[in-house]
Nucleic acid binder design. Sequence first.
DNA 1: TTGATAGGCAAGCCGTGACTTGCCTATGGT
DNA 2: ACCATAGGCAAGTCACGGCTTGCCTATCAA
Lengths: 97, 97
Amino acid sequence: MAEDVFKALADPTRRRILDELTERDGQTLFEICTRLVTKHGLGLSRQAISQHLAVLESAGLVRSRRQGRYKFHDLNTEPLERIANRWLRSDRPESTP
Amino acid sequence: MAEDVFKALADPTRRRILDELTERDGQTLFEICTRLVTKHGLGLSRQAISQHLAVLESAGLVRSRRQGRYKFHDLNTEPLERIANRWLRSDRPESTP
DNA sequence: TTGATAGGCAAGCCGTGACTTGCCTATGGT
DNA sequence: ACCATAGGCAAGTCACGGCTTGCCTATCAA
């Protein structure tokens, strides 16, 4: 549950993927692959990204919908909102200016 | 920097320590040790907790002040506020009901 | 139907991190 | 001065996680 969210966020590549999905939602595996390589210069295999996406999905941070031979990935921020309030429950920080 | 914050939060024992410090701030190593053992039933050595505190401190999540032979540990939520706004920047979540 | 595209499964390598053990330093009480 | 307390340092063990490699399945286009 929330346990997996922290482990999912522990890896920098997975955080990059979340960044990618915030910028453009509903990307496919190959799209994420190429964008990570070209924009961030990460030399990762397709399997590596696939496994990262599996971790993110089992943590509830990413939802996937299959459509034909494509599988689109959508960001889900709901688990993030919960962990944000774990140690900041008294008052939330003001949004960045 | 923020990189270390995620790695620091990845371990469940370290999150327990943060929980302990939110409940009572300014605890010493032995206090945290005994409370983790008694309240949460964790059978950890003193060194383990000490190393965890070092990780939390280098991540900026814990500040320590030495006083005589005691070393008190204080929680610092400022790094948490920043990572909370990384993927939630568009709109703030409503506080938990 | 065939070939190319999009993705999945499984085993294996390897580095990093968590924890222990043993010993050392320093402060404070009596 | 002496001993117990509070904490630090360093090396070593061990399991888990990230990544690769190789092969397999499924969908679309020609």
